[in-house]
Design a binder for these strands. Structure first.
Lengths: 244, 244
DNA sequence: CGAGCGCTTGACATAGGTCAACTACTGTGG
DNA sequence: CCACAGTAGTTGACCTATGTCAAGCGCTCG
């Protein structure tokens, strides 16, 4: 499928899958029309970098489909994923000229980008957008804080279980209120990405997944597909304190 | 000093020490007057709880002086400080009815509180406030993400050094651009609070401080007063990635 | 078929946690 | 003024969860 095809496919805001949750959620007809003049779509393949920390940013964007990560690194290479970007999440900070984080596509991805200058102008002049942006930022802050509890205080097993809970919940929400029992979903992350998100090594991630499997908390099909026979059990393993 | 005394002392916004950095930073005369009608001061002693997670919130506030912590806990008592609130920082989330975190005074503290309903109304109607709130929230999000790197990837020694760097920087900023060399400041946190902020135990905090002392990275007077003979050296020990 | 990647597993090392004793203060009551 | 109890912090001995290093498996791609 070419870029043009997708552009056509998603071109109309009224047909947009994230219309109700993205920055533009509260916008009316006229505001959407205005946003339309400054927007364009971009596609990325799994693994591609989207933004490098330090880049001059001339756009902000919403994730339309797929998963991206926000990462921060130290000079010696230790890296930490500081945010997972899922459909409807916002990329970029209005008012900031240079990117603070690396953004990487973890799966194939479609972004709805806005030229930064006119978008910033619109944030200033359109309360509906400013307010939505504030809401979304506050939600991200809550998510980041929940993650701080995980990073600082949870065991490796609890970390893995927490991640599975979160991915399960977000997958459910996207797919609509599916059957809760016998939940099944795909991990959008490699073991390495999981490790970088959870503050662990790849080996510990692998071992803990094996242990959860051995304990029948989860079932694996291949290496990425997860079945959860007893979701409350998984939540107990996560030790509570999850959210997002 | 009685509450009334302090109220009188801080009562006038024009004499307020955080006037230029708090939520009200961008407000004009008329807006300040409006804020004045919904505001009141509260004092807390070191150690006092300010808000319990789950409480119904009927105010939001700015920290005027002192230090408070935002904490999150698990059922079994493991706790993590997810935010340090310093003068000019904002407490509470507009649009949320119940508190999500425990807020505790770590030192004696003065807060400038606003009744929640009228404040929310004002956020809606006053772009200057809405915009400032967005800025502050984005800054907090950046700080939270920097902390995620610390929690997930730094060693105990780096964590301690990072905390010292941050406290030093914020103290400097409050006191004005003081002499950089031979920096000296008080820790506003107990060893336990440091442990809860850094995702460590009290013992590890104590040991690492002793080691930094032994390595002449810091000098101690008593248990709380720190002297830093070589600030760049301390920053190297922190392993970079700090901010706030 | 071989190379490369994502993942798993094992053997071993170690940073940081746990448990316990001890010091140094600080405030309280006799 | 002393005895005492209660905090905050330090230090030691030991333990364990997680990291490190290394080998190997099972794909997919060329």
């Amino acid at each position: 499928m070419s870029i043009t095809d997708r552009t056509l496919h998603f071109g109309s805001c009224s047909a947009c899958p994230i219309r109700k949750q993205a920055v533009c959620a509260h916008c009316g007809r006229e505001e959407l029309r205005q946003l339309d003049t400054m927007k364009y779509y971009r596609n990325f393949e799994a693994g591609q970098p989207i933004v490098w920390s330090g880049d001059r940013m001339n756009f902000v964007a919403s994730i339309v489909s797929g998963v991206a990560s926000l990462t921060q690194s130290m000079e010696d290479g230790r890296t930490q994923i500081v945010g997972l970007l899922l459909p409807s999440d916002f990329v970029g900070r209005p008012g900031r000229e240079f990117a603070e984080y690396n953004v990487t596509a973890k799966t194939d991805l479609v972004m709805c980008c806005f030229h930064k200058k006119p978008f910033e102008e619109m944030v200033r002049s359109t309360p509906a957008i400013a307010q939505r942006l504030l809401e979304m930022t506050l939600d991200e802050l809550d998510a980041a804080r929940a993650w701080m509890l995980l990073l600082g205080r949870k065991t490796a097993r609890e970390k893995i279980a927490s991640l599975l809970v979160i991915i399960a919940q977000r997958t459910l929400k996207l797919e609509g209120a599916n059957s809760r029992a016998n939940l099944e979903f795909d991990l959008p992350l490699t073991r390495e990405a999981m490790a970088d998100y959870l503050g662990l090594t790849i080996e510990t991630v692998s071992r803990q997944i094996s242990m959860l499997k051995k304990a029948n908390v989860i079932l694996l099909e291949g290496t990425r597909r997860i079945r959860v026979p007893d979701f409350p059990r998984l939540m107990v393993e996560a030790g509570s304190g999850a959210s997002v």
